[in-house]
Design a binder for these strands. Structure first.
Length: 514
DNA sequence: ATTCCCAGCGCG
DNA sequence: AAAGCGCGCTGGGAAT
């Protein structure tokens, strides 16, 4: 028997086959050696997480091996108009571009775009802030701004945005199928900081990330012969977990009420004349607020970000509303302290803005020009939870979720960016683990029903089962996804809803027979 | 020819 | 004055 010492590999003359054997041997023996060291560092908490991830490999591998059936007819039908349109738009863009700088313009090159828009067209540069630095941007938001403000930018911005969108879709439609025609992805069950899975092209370089497919492109994915697809997701998952982790009873009630966003409007603006009539309340919430936003739009779009530590400045930029309006929303949403003089100035500038309500509803601290106003807000628990998270971060540098997943934070513990990561961590991780618990149970307990899991999208599972068995199977899926969890002394149950259909786009919500 | 980083963008 | 978080993929362009 030939003995090869790993310390002498460099000096060995190995055949191709022998190289592969050595590679394989090192893969196994080194993994074992590493495990013998690492295993000693596990404690009860991390051991539990490790065990769960090992178990998760089973359903993950079965999904990766099975892959998804693609309806190539549909893919073709989607592809054709995209290609046709792409040719047209690209031709147009280049026609205009040649008029400006006598050559084509590559819409994929930020460098060319910068030079073209900000030098040749002489448009004022749009600045974005990344990593604490100002950067000239040519992203979608910048292009939308330019086309709004400067007529000469319109044809360019329009076609660049269109081309980017088309390319994104074509990439999905054109990604390589395996030899049996199926599209396979690779799931990493332990690839992220939060415990969520990630998805990428398969180990053979075929397929693609299955967790960022747009609704429209989902149309190409179909069940196998005799099956129907199902897509079961945890309802309002992140909001619910946030509510329980913050321990904010008002927000919990809002999440578990008829319509989350309307409930939030009700809590944020309690004096709009609410009744017990749900339809009437919805109408109130849909009344215009500022700009093109209704009250309900505002809560829907600003609430989630605010839960995760989005600053008023960024909220204003993001929603294209004044800083004062963004600040006002956050004060009403989760309270805070602000200078009285600011509120008075804003009130003077904007009589309709409701800033006087903030002054009247708040507690004034101190006297004279430096007075502050403390505002309670609709969901003070959320701000309190942010503060508690900051404290825990400073103290330990680690956070542990209700499902016992611990994360070490390596950034500077007193920086805002580290705090925001910490705030996002617990809800995001908890949902991921909860969904994967459900996924495991559905996979493990429902094989005999002819059910197969095909995909995982963070808070939802995609799968298939034999046509006609909906009434029998769907309640079993939903039951297995419902895993009660105790958080801060309360029991949280997140319900799921389940859609079915003959492709991944055109699905209908399933309801127990009516 | 290959590797690396960046900007941009899709999903949750 | 100015960074919601978590991922992966593509293409451009510079460096190797």
């Amino acid at each position: 028997m030939k003995v090869i010492k790993n310390t002498e590999i460099a000096a060995q003359e190995l055949s191709k086959e022998q190289t592969l054997w050595v590679y394989c041997g090192l893969d196994c023996s080194l993994t074992s050696e590493i495990w013998s060291k690492l295993s000693k560092e596990l404690d009860e908490t991390t051991k539990h997480t490790y065990k769960f991830e090992l178990d998760s490999l089973k359903p993950a591998l079965s999904m990766m091996l099975r892959g998804l059936k693609v309806d190539e007819m549909k893919a073709g039908l989607l592809r054709a108009p995209l290609i046709k349109n792409r040719v047209k738009v690209e031709r147009m863009l280049n026609l205009f571009a040649n008029a400006v700088w006598d050559k084509d313009l590559n819409h994929n090159s930020p460098l060319q775009l910068k030079s073209f828009l900000y030098e040749w067209l002489n448009l004022p540069p749009v600045i974005a802030y990344t990593k604490g630095k100002q950067k000239v941007s040519t992203d979608k938001e910048a292009l939308e701004h330019l086309r709004r403000e400067y007529p000469r930018a319109r044809p360019f911005c329009n076609s660049i945005i269109t081309l980017r969108d088309i390319d994104k879709q074509l990439n999905i439609l054109n990604c390589e199928r395996d030899s049996d025609g199926r599209l396979r992805t690779s799931f990493k069950v332990a690839g992220t900081e939060t415990g969520r899975w990630s998805s990428s092209e398969s180990p053979w370089g075929t397929g693609t990330n299955l967790q960022n497919i747009t609704k429209d492109m989902r149309e190409i994915f179909v069940p196998d012969e005799g099956n129907v697809l199902f897509y079961a997701d945890l309802e309002q998952a992140e909001s619910r977990v946030t509510a329980y982790i913050a321990g904010d009873q008002g927000y919990i009630n809002a999440c578990e009420g008829e319509d989350l966003h309307t409930q939030v409007v009700k809590m944020v603006w309690p004096n709009m004349g609410w009744s017990s009539d749900l339809a009437q309340n919805r109408e109130l919430a849909d009344r215009p607020y500022i700009g093109h936003f209704s009250y309900r739009d505002m809560c829907k779009r600003a609430g989630h970000g605010t839960n995760y530590g989005l600053s008023a400045t960024s909220l204003g930029r993001h929603l294209k509303i004044k800083l004062s309006h963004a600040t006002r929303f956050q004060l009403l949403y989760y309270g805070g302290v602000i200078a009285l003089s600011s509120l008075e100035r804003w009130h003077k500038q904007d009589k309709e803005g409701g800033f006087h309500e903030l002054i009247d509803g708040g507690t004034i601290i101190g006297t004279g020009p430096s007075s502050l106003v403390r505002i309670q807000g609709a969901f003070p628990g959320i701000r309190k939870w942010h503060d508690e998270t900051a404290k825990q971060l400073q103290l330990e540098g680690t956070l542990t979720t209700p499902l016992g997943r611990r994360r070490q934070f390596w950034g500077r513990l007193d920086e805002a960016t580290t705090l925001r990561k910490a705030i996002a961590y617990v809800p995001q991780s908890t949902i991921g683990d909860l969904l994967n618990m459900g996924l495991y149970r559905v996979w493990d307990e429902m094989k005999d029903d002819g059910l197969q899991i095909l995909g995982q999208v963070h808070d939802a599972i995609l799968g298939q089962f034999p046509i006609g068995k909906e009434a029998e199977i769907i309640p079993k899926i939903l039951a297995r996804m419902e895993n009660p969890l105790e958080i801060k002394g309360r029991q949280m149950i997140i319900p799921s809803d389940c859609e079915t259909g003959l492709d991944w786009k055109n699905m209908k919500k399933w309801k127990p027979h009516e």
